[in-house]
Structure formats: structure tokens, C-alpha cells
Design a protein around this nucleic acid. Structure first.
Lengths: 149, 149
DNA sequence: GATGAAACACTCACTGT
DNA sequence: ACAGTGAGTGTTTCATC
């Protein structure tokens, strides 16, 4: 992972469908050389996948919330992940330090739909309390930077 | 935005670099027909961009937190967005209903780096109080579903 | 890492429905 | 309005140096 790799990755974050030749021109490499590096970056897991970013508002998923979950007893992160993965409305989940044990980011089409998803959450074993923070609007939502730090 | 569009979009979420011919085979269309639809989906904003998803842990950005921000006075979302955009550590920001006014998702390379970013946040005009929730581990982080709801 | 060549994909204008 | 076809161009992907 040298400077050129970093440059290639930042190109692909900006445009995930950029051609290898195009990237090569920017970073000063031939297309096959870029391909080999991208293949290596994917194999090593630095690039986990390529995806289309959607404007969720543009197709109906207008309701989102952060749900702080508190457990009754100790639950392993692995078991919690298993339990959350089947709920499609859960787009992200993090174990956290602080008042609650888990922060779950939920996306739904509307409040009724959100309530359904929340009920599925609350029905999970060991869930003691949930506290929802409804999102009013998304100000920023972007990939994290690749830059050196 | 019919069923075929939805199918195409879900293909592109799974693999953002899939070829139009490949997608066409799955959804039962020719490559040019798929391209025309993808172009239209981008123009209409349903697909906002294509990007590489990175494993942030794999290159050093191991610290993340949710910061609940409370304002002293009323601040317009637009002005808040302007103020937050230049801070690279801010990967997401939402106005919310509840105890605080804003939830800011911050990613940094370590605690010291996070503290720097937090100080930049706290230095913004009209920021009254911040309350940070440190993320211990990421259980789930995935694109939201495209399915009908 | 570069080059060259073959296979493949993209993209256009055009045609048909 | 939308899908398919065909042709020209550009891109990917090898093997080789």
C-alpha cells in the first residue's frame, strides 16, 4: 500500500467505474499495472467491494433513525450481529461505550414501517431498553477520506 | 422506475463494476438497453454515484464516534452543512429530533486524531454542548435494500 | 512495470415495434 | 417511447519481455 495505491483507491472512491486506462493516466501507470494493483487491493481486503450509491430519498426510504439499545445481560458481538443481519431495515450497527450497548441505524419507508422494524429489534432476546432518535434530514453522507493521517 | 430498473439497481449495488451485457443477461435486456436505463437512473438521481467501498480498519481509520451536538440558538441546516463539510473526519451528519440537534458520525485514525476533529466541531459557531459516544466495533455496515416496501 | 494482441465491452446511429 | 442490431472504437486481460 504505497502512494500510488492510495491514489488509485481515491480515484475509485470518487468514480467506482473509472477505467484502468483512465486511472493509469492520472497516476502515471499503464492499464495492466493498475489492474494488477486493484486486484491486489481487493484480494487484501482494502477495497471490499464496488457499489452504486443510491439516493434513498429518491425511492421512498424517507425515514431513518438511530436506536440506542441496552441489554439485560452480556451478549457477544457475534451473536448480536447474527440477530441483526436478517432485519433488512438495519443498515448499520455498532457496539458502543457509554449509556447504551448498541447503536443501530435503521432505514424505513415511513414511520409505520420504522415501527415494525423497531418492534423486531425489541423482540430480540436480551434486549432491555431502546431509545430512538429520529433523523429529520441528512446533512452529509460521504465515504471517509483515504488520505494519509 | 419499474421492476426492471429496480433489478438493475440491485445488481449495481451488489457489483458496481458489472458490465451492461452481464446485467442485461440477468434482467433479460440487451446491453444498450441497460446502458440507457442506467444513464436515466443517474440523470434522475436514483443512482447518485459509483464508488469503491473500503475496509477502513484495513488502513488505519480505527476510531469512530457519534457526537450529539446541541446548539445555543437556531441554526439553519444549510449553514450547518457548510460548516461541517470542510472537516474531513465528518463522514455523516444528521439533524435529529430529541435531546440534541445534530448527530455527527466521525472517523479518525486514533483517539488523538478524533480529539482534534472534536475540537474543530466544538469550535464552530453556535455549538453549545457535545456528547460523544465512542464506537467499539462495527457489527453491520451495508447499503440499504432496494426492495419494494 | 510496459508492450502488443486477442477477446470483450461500450457506445453510437439506425431500425423496428 | 423503448428495445434490438450492427459497426466502430475503446477497454480488459493475457502472455511475454
Amino acid at each position: 500500500m504505497d502512494d500510488i495505491d492510495q491514489h488509485i483507491v481515491s480515484c475509485l472512491v470518487v468514480d467506482g467505474r473509472a477505467s484502468f486506462r483512465e486511472i493509469g493516466e492520472i497516476v502515471g501507470l499503464s492499464a495492466p499495472a493498475v489492474k494488477r494493483r486493484v486486484d491486489r487491493l481487493q484480494a487484501s481486503g482494502v477495497i471490499s467491494s464496488f457499489t452504486a450509491r443510491l439516493d434513498q430519498g429518491a425511492l421512498g426510504w424517507n425515514t431513518q433513525a438511530f436506536v440506542n439499545v441496552t441489554f439485560r445481560n452480556n451478549v457477544s458481538p457475534a451473536r448480536m450481529q447474527e440477530a441483526l443481519a436478517p432485519i433488512p431495515e438495519v443498515v448499520a450497527a455498532y457496539t458502543v461505550s457509554g449509556d447504551s450497548d448498541l447503536v443501530v441505524h435503521i432505514r424505513a419507508s415511513n414511520m409505520q414501517h420504522f415501527e415494525q422494524a423497531l418492534e423486531r429489534l425489541r423482540a430480540l432476546d436480551s434486549v432491555d431498553r431502546t431509545e430512538s432518535t429520529i433523523v429529520l434530514s441528512t446533512l452529509i453522507d460521504r465515504p471517509s477520506p483515504v488520505d494519509r493521517h
